[in-house]
């Protein structure tokens, strides 16, 4: 019940040299997202950052995780300090960054979990030009395996592509988890989308709390009984159960 209004969001950011010309725009977009989401007082937000570059010999930094924090200023500082460097060939260790976000960050058990992928180059092995690992990323991950990992961890990936080269791969990565892809010029649309998502997820907190209370006191209450006690409609209760159940809030 305590986590009913929690949102965990991780930025997974490409910090290779090719990002040099984009990094400031990307940082601005990420900070704008944080500011937009932080406006919602009812949501307890925590932020994490993962930066990724590439596998050796292209680069020595494959990925680096900055743990979740509820201090939004600290998170903004982390983002502002990201420095582009190295990278080697065209494609980068995108899969490693995403998998690190899924596995190494400490997600709160019942939080709504989002990842914002920001980059200008596709992952290895998806047909990107100048790929030192054309047969696949050395980590062994694929688009399918990464989306499966994210789905299992209940994480939705949204992607912000800084060049057209990532439209296909980032699009598949995001859609495969129920998220969306946005071109760099659509930064505002991405923010609007996230705000809509927040509204859907956290827009009926009083109703959701009441529903959870009723369910926790008597698990045998069916949809009809819940609808009657909440003076609501059956479809509204059924949808709320799906939404809360997806975050494990209804687990026995």
């Amino acid at each position: 019940m305590n986590e009913i209004n929690t949102l965990d969001m991780a930025f997974v950011v490409d910090t290779t040299g090719s990002m040099g010309s984009f990094i400031q725009a990307a940082q601005r977009q990420m900070i704008a997202m944080i500011e937009a989401l932080a406006q919602s007082n009812s949501v307890e937000l925590q932020l994490g950052v993962v930066e990724y570059r590439d596998h050796p010999p292209q680069d020595r930094l494959v990925s680096r995780v900055y743990p979740f924090t509820t201090d939004l200023r600290a998170a903004q500082t982390t983002i502002a300090r990201l420095k582009p460097d190295g990278g080697g060939d065209g494609p980068e260790s995108v899969f490693d960054g995403l998998v690190a976000a899924c596995r190494e960050l400490t997600w709160r058990p019942h939080a709504r979990r989002l990842t914002i992928l920001v980059g200008d180059a596709p992952p290895h092995g998806v047909g990107g030009g100048g790929d030192a690992f054309p047969k696949g990323c050395p980590c062994g991950e694929t688009i399918e395996s990464v989306t499966a990992t994210a789905e299992r961890a209940r994480i939705t990936i949204y992607a912000l592509g800084l060049t057209g080269a990532v439209r296909d791969s980032f699009g598949r990565l995001s859609r495969g988890t129920g998220g969306e892809y946005f071109d760099v010029g659509q930064g505002n649309a991405a923010i609007e989308r996230l705000q809509t998502l927040l509204k859907t997820e956290f827009g009926q907190l009083t109703f959701d709390r009441h529903l959870l209370e009723l369910r926790s006191t008597d698990r045998s209450l069916g949809i009809d009984a819940l609808a009657e006690r909440l003076t609501s409609s059956r479809p509204a209760v059924a949808s709320a159960l799906s939404r809360l159940g997806a975050r494990g809030l209804l687990s026995r």
Partner: peptide
Amino acid sequence: SLAGWENALSEVYPGGAT
């Protein structure tokens, strides 16, 4: 009926790979 389907799926929540 819709009520029957709502009850049958009331403990089915999104989760897992595809």
